[in-house]
């Protein structure tokens, strides 16, 4: 299998940043799935993670902070033949874009959402993010973060997401596999990727994650929602990696009357007879 289908470009990330591993895994996952650059749309908001589409040769939509999901799902609604992948950070996905996170789980459009979760704001140089742990001292949270961290895995399962997984940049082979499963999953797929920010998060370091992560055992049943919620609540002492929850669900495209015809929306046309009938209905 060719490993050169996708090209990468010089990045503006800090040396040692976890984003390099994610970019590399994404490239491999897409190549292993046999995707062509022109059929892939990488969407992002704003942030260090959100620069990912700038560094891989595919179609790219680098939109607004927090707003990658609405643009990405609509692009998929417009053209279902695109493989739509959102790469963006914890602040973008769970903070600024929190409302879109909740409601796009409900929509269940067939897109993939990779959250580069470093539990800190990187681009703005080190303030608490929605997933920052309590007590984290930053330039703004000078007495330590007093807010409890959001648990994105638990929220996603509770909201009805059909594919909820967690990866870690220190386990690249597993991450590639999770990415491939998420891309192939029919519906909204979330992979929260633990990624150290070497410049601004001195607490949740590579070593901190490495001490806590473990891969879900083979006997684990990802279709058991209660078990998934129990595992999703693990974080402080040990952190499970893998597909926490998986359920086959009807997608937006399968439920929408216009889209389930199978003709991509952008190729549909309005029958002139329908237009004339509409006009006549006002006479």
């Amino acid at each position: 299998m060719s490993t050169d289908t996708f090209s990468t470009y010089e990045t503006a990330w800090c040396p040692g940043c976890g984003n390099f591993a994610i970019l590399d895994c994404l490239k491999k996952a897409l190549e292993q799935l046999g995707k062509k650059p022109s059929e892939v749309l990488l969407a992002a908001g704003i942030g260090q993670a959100a620069k990912t589409p700038q560094y891989l040769s595919a179609n790219a939509f680098c939109g607004l902070h927090g707003r990658s999901l609405p643009a990405a799902v609509a692009a998929k609604i417009a053209n279902e033949s695109l493989t739509v992948i959102v790469n963006t950070g914890d602040g973008d996905s769970y903070g600024e874009g929190g409302n879109h996170f909740l409601h796009n789980i409900r929509r269940n459009v067939d897109i993939t959402h990779f959250v580069h979760d470093n539990q800190i704001y990187g681009l703005t140089k080190g303030q608490a993010s929605p997933t920052s742990i309590e007590g984290l001292v930053t330039g703004v949270q000078t007495d330590g973060n007093i807010n409890e961290p959001l648990n994105p895995m638990l929220v996603a399962i509770a909201c009805g997401a059909g594919f909820v997984a967690r990866g870690f940049t220190g386990r690249k082979e597993q991450l590639i596999s999770l990415m491939k499963q998420a891309i192939e999953y029919k519906g909204y797929a979330l992979v929260d990727i633990l990624q150290p920010c070497i410049s601004f998060n001195k607490t949740n370091t590579f070593g901190w994650y490495n001490e806590r992560v473990y891969e879900l055992e083979e006997s684990y049943n990802p279709q058991d929602k209660i078990a998934a919620m129990t595992r999703a609540m693990e974080f402080d002492e040990k952190i499970p990696l893998g597909v926490l929850y998986r359920e086959e669900k009807c997608t937006y495209h399968q439920k929408n009357t216009v889209l389930k015809t199978g003709t991509p929306l952008l190729d549909q046309t309005t029958d002139p007879a329908v237009m004339n009938r509409l006009i006549a209905s006002y006479i």
Partner: peptide, 29 residues
């Protein structure tokens, strides 16, 4: 919409509504 081949999406807020419209337009709808 169903007869005319149009998708109408009630967004979660106006910010989503316009970002969706822009995403759809970018992708050719």
């Amino acid at each position: 919409a169903d007869d005319a081949g149009i998708v109408v999406e009630q967004a979660e807020d106006e910010i989503a509504a316009i970002n969706m419209a822009i995403g759809a337009s970018y992708a050719g709808a």
